[in-house]
Amino acid sequence: MRHLLAFVFLLAMGGCHMWSEEEPVIAEAIADLDAALTRTVQAAGLPVDVARKPRPHPCHSETRHGASVDIDGASEEPAKTVAEVLASWRREGLTVVSDRTRDQKWPQATVRGRLVEMTITGFPDRKAVWIWGSTACLEGEVPETWRDVL
């Protein structure tokens, strides 16, 4: 009986999915990520031209693409930087997934937006922070600047 119920539930989920609103495209998510990271870099006090290292975000799909960006920067007080960035994310209204800003070894915070997820991690032993941003996997045309990456 429980298997029948599960089957019916899955059918219902599939049906709801068919009538759901139109999905955003990957270009929109990449633009969102780019803008969010620009604000994050500013909140972290990193140079505006700090290197952004792009890479694919896993999608396990033939038609969907995901983008990921790593930013490594220096910080005199990584724990403080992490806390300040998290505060800025809260002000933007992003959903806080994880708040480990009090972690002594690796203070960290992770937030989620509509199309992006971002994490900042502090490494106090080497006075560094790592900002990792990624998009959801979405369909659509990949922007020109990302075609060599995705």
Partner: peptide, 29 residues
């Protein structure tokens, strides 16, 4: 895993550990 507490089913959650959605960073870490 960093996933949302739920009693229901998210059809995409099975792939959301290393990427896919906006709910993978905590799992990966």
């Amino acid at each position: 895993s960093g996933g949302e507490p739920t009693l229901g089913v998210d059809m995409h959650a099975h792939s959301d550990y290393f990427g896919h959605s906006t709910a993978s960073h905590v799992a990966t870490w």
